[in-house]
Structure formats: C-alpha cells, structure tokens
Design a protein around this nucleic acid. Structure first.
Lengths: 348, 348
DNA sequence: AACGGCTGAGAAAACGTTTACTACAATGCA
DNA sequence: TGCATTGTAGTAAACGTTTTCTCAGCCGTT
C-alpha cells in the first residue's frame, strides 16, 4: 500500500533525517537555510542526503510553497524560424533565472488554444506567454477569473485588455508598402497567410489595403489556404500572374511565402527585380542567400522573447505589473526590389 | 497566516464541498470518477465548482498521485531548424496524449547539461528526452541512481548505456562521401561544426576521414570555431581554397555551413557545380531555394521526435522498456553537385 | 419480517515539504 | 549564583489532493 505511484523512487526527508539522526526540520533547514544550522550537523545531513541520493520532491515543495518557478509558453508551431527564435530567447532567460518553461504548440486552430493554456495552468505554470493576440472568449474569460499573469508576445496590440510585447505589424507592412511606392510601383500585390485566427496576417493585410487605398491604388490580394508553406507562396503568385499580369511588385507577409514567389519566378523565367520586385517579412537567416537576396523586414524575435520572460519573472517575484512595449523593426534592403519598369508606367 | 503563497488564488475542493453541501471525497469523485456518483449530486457539485471557478491544484494532485504527466526535453538550442523540427514533433505528440512538455535549452556547453536535466527532474519531469549523446559523467551517474527514464534522440548510438532513437550520423556521411567519389571526385574537403561535446559532428567527421582513408585519398578538414553559422561556413571555405585549391568537392556537416560555402562561391565567382560540388546535411526547408539548389541528406527529425515521445509515454504508462531505433535518411540530389572537372584528374 | 447484497457518500489518512512555535542548552552579565 | 539572552534543533501543523475504509440506507429475496 505504500509507494502507490512510481514505486522505488522515494527517498524523502524522513529517510535522510533518520540516517543523519536528526529531525526532518533540520534536514529541510540544511537544504534551504544553511546559515541557521550548526556546521557539524549540516555536514552530517549533507552526507546522508548524498549517500541516499536524495532529491527533493517537486510536488511536495510546490504544494507547501505555493510556487513552482515554472512559466508556460503557447505557440502555434515550433518548426518555423520566427517561432523558434522567440522561444529560444524565452528559454534562455528562464534558464538563467532558475525557472523552467513549458512549451505548448497548439497550431493555428483557435479551438485548441484554450485547452493548451488550461493544461499548462493545470500543470503548475505561474504565468503564461501567448504568441499573438488572445481572441478566444473562453481563454479571456478564464484569465479574467484566475489571477494568472498573461503576456501576449510578438504582436504589439494597442487597446487589448491584456498587455503585449512585440512589433506593430500594421506599421511594418506600411513601411514596406511605402518603400514599394517610393520605388515607383503602382501595381503592388500582397500574398498573405491565412488570416483566420492570426492577428499578424490580419494586421498586415489591413495595413496593405489601407496604404494602397490612401494612394488611390488598386489592391491585389491573395490569401493562401491552408498553409504558410513555400509552395503556397508559389501557387498564390501564379494566380496573381494569371489574373493581374500588370503587377510589378509583390509583397509577402512572410519570408517563406516570398521564397515561393522567388522560386516560381525562377521557373517562369521572370527576372527579379528587373521585371518584378519582391519583398518578404521576418528576415529569416537564409533570406540573403536565396536565388535573389530578399528585401525584407527584420523582427527582433529573440529580444522580444527575452524581454517577455524577464517581465514575467519580475511580475511573479516583485509584483511589477506587466506593461506593453513596442519593438522596433528594420527594413533590410537587398537585391530583390528596384524601381518599377517603364512598361508598368505605360500600363498605369 | 493563511494563504501563504499567492494569496487570493485558493478555491479548493473544500470550498466546493461546502457550497455543494457534500464531502470533499464526493467532489473529487465527481471530478475523477463520475460513474461512481449519483447524477443529481454530480450536477450540484459541478455547478458549485463552476460558480467558484475551481481549478484543481497541480501540486496537491501530483503529490497524491505521484504523477505529473510531464516530460522534459533537453536541446542545445531552439533557433535552428533541425532542433525545432524535432521539438515540434515531440510537443505535438505530448499534447495529443495529455502530457505537458518542459523544454530546456542548454547550449553546446556541456557543463550546463547536468544543471538543465536536474532542474527538469526537480520540476517534476517524469522522463527526459536528451538531444544527442549523453556524455556528462555527472548526468550519467544521476540517471543510474534515479529511476528516471532517459532517451537519447536524433543520434542512433550503438553500444551506449542509454537507449537512443535517431539516425546513424556516420553512415549518413559515408553515403554522401561515396556519392562524391562515384562522381569522380578525388579531392573532397569537409567542413564540420565544432566537435567538442557534439556527437553528431564527431561521428560525421570520423566517417568522412575513414571513408577517404579507405579509398586512399587525402583528407582536407576544417572544423569551424566557435559557431555553426552561415558565416563560419564561408570562412572555412575560404581557408580551404587558400590552402587546398585543388579541392573539387566540399561536404558540409550542416546545411547552414553549406549555405556559407555557396554564398562565398557566389562572391568569388566560383561556378557551382561546374568548378565545385557542394553538399550539405539535414535538408532544411530552404535548401532547394538557394542560389544553387543544395544536394543534401534529409533527416526525418519530426518523425524521430514523434516516435521518441510515444515511446517515452508507453514506458511511463505501461512500463514498456525504451529500445533503440535507427531511422533511415535519404540522399536528396539537387544541382549543387556533378562530376569532377577534368582539371582535377590532371592534378591528382 | 429478517437478512444479504448493493449503491453511494462521508471520515480520515497519506503523499513530501516548509516553517511557526516551542524547548532546551549554553553563554553573558550583574 | 541567578537570570536574561542567544543559538540551535525538534514538534507539529498545513499546503490540496485522492482513495481506502466504513457505514447508512435501500431493495430484493426467502
């Protein structure tokens, strides 16, 4: 009847105490507040603990202390540079501060995010870092009812009930769009990933459309379905070429989509940037190495992750409130864009 | 004196029981074994729980059950496609099986790996997935003394005390080397990442050297320091060109290093594959999109991760022992390699 | 009507910690 | 010598669960 769970594993403070001939209180003190205990006794306890291979039981400790030193992170995926760079920044910081980090991927399926968050909470996460905007009603409700700090990361979201740390997606896209316009392009298309439950894609799409409208220009938009893959980008581009052959510039909402466009251009013999200018979003590591080095926008994902983790820990340990913060991005000008070709001016 | 830790948060089974006018045992039963409890009472309890916003306390539960349903993963980094693909496979599987996953990055610094593993263990991880070969003495010792299942992932390691699931790095490199030889290359160089504490790089390096020796050919090896970056690859290649200009083929131990080589070739005006054949290792997503589509070796990292997670869960739940398993890899032939140029034969 | 079995709920113990409180010995001081 | 003070270790309670054991009540059978 003893040792219900994982039998065997079970050397506790009691065992150590017995071997060292002290009380369990002393064992605990030796381990946590050594300054309050006699040196000779301390050594005896330490020796006994080592001999028995004692390791403190996490559940007992967590129960007593009501602390777990654990933070959960929610991401759509992990196998995409932008997520993993952010995650890396988070983990790095947590590790340095003696925290452990849950990482949960829930895909882009919004029905899963609540389950994912709930699970982390249920496993003892003391705070949650959520990628992008929290839209799910159940989750918002849950957060409101439970005193668990939540920070949105990657997107900077003004006016949201929850604090956020990251970039202003709309402003970024506007920067790219204005660059295209400054280069004289008048027929600029956009390829976006699915906007469903993805605030990044939504904001970028909206910013593109409003910028174009502001300048009295037509919009040519392709929203890929269902994925965010290189292939999707290529297919979307092909549709654009079929339906709007006068387009002279293509903006892509991710570098991966831009890869697809470049790859397709190569196949079709379209000269980049001579006939077509292409821009991405993210500045993944290989952007400069593509067939045509890609003009894009660099996002300090690692910095965002580090900052978010630090802020969360400060909140947990010193009650500092979580505040929103906007991160700057940089346009990275490479060879994939240039001035609009003359033919386009004629067409316009 | 009550509510020591995070004040406020603290609706327990007792509160629910009081409101529903039942005992705490009944509350627990309703939540865990609803079939053993009267329907009307069940409803009453559920309503009370919902009204109070009850969520079960993870520490209490873990303490009582001696289970956490949590698995830890140890990786060098996260911001590299090969790691994140693997991690994604693991997380995906854990999520589906109602497990939570710790993810801890410890860099390539071997002194950190013990701390990282120990921390996860101390936070309640029931099993550990460790990337690559476990070399650290302290960690091996710890594993031997504690009944915690550990599985090495990514590398398949024959003869190691711990089970492993992954690829045979040596055999993979041999495949690539033999391909180069079949194409007639006689002066084949290798660019490797740091081998210190990295069994993948070590095995690949060894396999390269032994294959060359077997065929009576010279070896030209560059081990980059300190990193694994694109830049490192380029610099290593430049050194090779300075010291061994007669080399006609370069094998790289990672795709990223190969990127550096390609990029350098472009700068130097070296024709790939006309003057130089280049191969990578990993088949990252953008390998086909580079300036010259890269010949490489595809590693089913996601599959490995999924398999490892499943195996670990099977061990935890049904005591199935962890067994090693080798995964197959595929040579991916793209345009970056071709037959050795004639000039080389003269030189040889 | 008496009895046995069954259903369902409560009481209480246990999981492994940490720590407030208590107790005791040793020391310093008058 | 007597008393206050300090240092150090032990006792016991509490953290929130789950589950065994017990028992009350009910139904059906003889």
């Amino acid at each position: 009847m003893k040792n219900k769970g994982r039998a065997g594993r079970g050397v506790t403070v009691h065992d150590v105490a017995k071997l060292a001939n002290v009380s369990i209180a002393t064992v605990s003190r030796v381990l946590n507040k050594p300054e309050n205990v006699n040196k000779e006794m301390s050594e005896r306890v330490l020796k006994a603990a080592a001999q028995l291979g004692y390791t403190t039981n996490s559940a007992g400790k967590a129960l007593r202390l009501a602390r777990t030193r654990t933070i959960g992170t929610l991401l759509p995926r992990l196998d995409d540079p932008i997520f993993s760079e952010l995650a890396h920044g988070i983990q790095e910081t947590l590790f340095a501060q003696d925290y452990a980090g849950f990482l949960q991927t829930s895909g882009y399926d919004n029905t899963k995010i609540f389950d994912a968050a709930f699970r982390l909470f249920n496993r003892g996460a003391e705070g949650l870092l959520v990628f992008g905007r929290v839209d799910d009603e159940r989750l918002l409700d849950f957060i409101a009812k439970n005193p668990i700090p939540v920070l949105q990361v990657y997107s900077y979201l003004e006016g949201h009930a929850l604090p956020s740390v990251g970039i202003d997606n709309g402003r970024c896209t506007q920067k790219i769009a204005e660059l295209m316009l400054r280069f004289g392009h008048r027929h600029v298309a956009l390829i976006s990933g699915p906007t469903q439950g993805n605030d990044r894609q939504q904001s970028r799409l909206n910013a593109y459309e409003s910028t174009m409208r502001e300048h009295g220009l037509e919009t040519v938009t392709q929203v890929v379905q269902p994925g965010y893959t290189i292939n999707d980008g290529g297919m979307a581009f092909r549709r654009i070429m079929e339906q709007n052959p006068h387009v002279t510039a293509v903006m892509c909402n991710t570098d991966l989509l831009a890869c697809g466009v470049l790859s397709e251009c190569r196949k079709l013999g379209i000269d980049v940037p001579g006939q077509l200018s292409v821009a991405g979003f993210e500045d993944v590591s290989f952007a400069p190495l593509l067939y045509q080095p890609l003009t894009t926008l660099s996002v300090p994902a690692g910095d965002i992750g580090r900052h978010a983790a630090r802020a969360m820990i400060a909140n947990l340990e010193h009650g500092e409130s979580l505040t929103s913060m906007q991160f700057e991005t940089n346009l990275i000008l490479r060879d994939s864009i240039t001035v609009a070709p003359k033919t386009s001016e004629r067409a316009a």
